[in-house]
């Protein structure tokens, strides 16, 4: 066992995020058994459905890289959805809604960041509490009833395509590119690497540790605002439940993509393929007639295996 693990090729293979393996296996499975499903239009629809998750993952991976977590994305999506669909702002423009979504997300992200970075409060509890408060607030404002319709221009945009690729998917990929650039080319990216590896060493290197954590959460909040826009556009009507499972799913996709608390080998594209893997898992299982519960089990098993894969590697590298 040890000999096998010490082999340099095995070592290198172990360093590839599990998402790439899962994605490749699923793609080959489809190609061999259900080639008809590999139609860009069909796949586009499936991938588009996961665009909100994909966007949210971008924020999640940044905070997980600094050893934190953000469970408040669901609350942010719900609140933004309420603002847009409740008719509070009739005849408002896209720019107005975008400003509201991003403003809300950023403010909440900043609050999370201050509580976690400055107060050193537990990240799980803070973001969970924020989410609970936001859900409660929306329930209170809407008295538990779904609010009205989403302005049609949002949904129309959601349905557009650029060639065969749906616009939301392009938006998601573009955003991923930006976050990848942020993390690999800016000083902030270096700070994130440092804080994730060792907050103590980062402090003595002159890295503003607290500010990095606050900023990471603020960016995650901003990105959650974007995810809320995409999610709202996708469902056309208001809801008091939309997006609540997304934060947990985003944690799962991030892990599958090779980013675990503080360690970022998976980069930004690992989690991107993590989300794609979830999508394709769904497609493959549907193609094979696996029921929804079966999909949940498979999803859980894949997360578990990916995590064990990392755990074993980590234990080895110590």
């Amino acid at each position: 066992m040890t000999a096998v693990l010490n082999n340099s090729i095995v070592q290198r293979l172990l360093r590839v995020p599990p998402a790439y393996y899962v994605f490749t296996i699923l793609l080959i499975t489809l190609w061999v058994y259900r080639p008809a499903m590999l139609n860009p239009n069909v796949l586009g629809v499936f991938v588009r459905q996961n665009a909100p998750l994909g966007v949210l993952v971008l924020g999640q991976l940044i905070v997980m890289r600094v050893k934190s977590i953000d469970l408040s994305g669901g609350g942010i999506i719900l609140l933004v959805n309420y603002f847009i669909s409740s008719g509070l702002f009739p005849d408002a423009s896209l720019a107005f809604f975008a400003a509201i979504a991003l403003g809300t997300g950023t403010a909440i992200g900043l609050f999370n960041g201050l509580m976690i970075g400055k107060r050193h409060a537990s990240a799980v509890i803070v973001t969970l509490a924020v989410s609970i408060m936001l859900v409660g607030l929306v329930q209170f404002l809407s008295s538990g009833k779904p609010p009205g319709d989403v302005p049609s221009f949002l949904n129309d945009m959601y349905d557009t395509k650029l060639g065969v690729v749906p616009t939301p998917v392009i938006f998601w990929a573009f955003l991923t590119l930006i976050v990848a650039g942020l993390l690999s080319f800016t000083v902030f990216g270096r700070f994130v690497d440092s804080v994730g590896e060792s907050a103590e060493a980062a402090h003595f290197s002159g890295v503003p540790v607290e500010r990095t954590v606050v900023l990471a959460h603020t960016i995650a909040g901003f990105i959650a605002g974007l995810a809320a826009l995409v999610q709202t556009a996708s469902i056309a009507v208001g809801s008091v439940r939309v997006g609540l499972d997304l934060p947990i799913l985003s944690v799962a996709a991030t892990i599958l993509g090779g980013v675990v608390f503080g360690r970022g080998e998976g980069g930004v594209w690992g989690p991107f393929f993590g989300v794609l893997s979830f999508t394709f898992l769904f497609v493959v299982m549907t193609a094979f007639g696996v029921s929804d519960p079966g999909k949940l089990i498979a999803q859980g098993a894949i997360i578990l295996l990916a995590a064990i894969f990392y755990g074993v590697r980590l234990a080895r590298s110590r």
Binding site: F185, T186, V187, G189, R190, A202, S205, G206, V207
Partner: peptide
Amino acid sequence: AHNIAIGLHSARSELAIA
């Protein structure tokens, strides 16, 4: 490389290109 350069990075603004 990171261990050496981080001291230089940390003297600059977050949004600067590394």
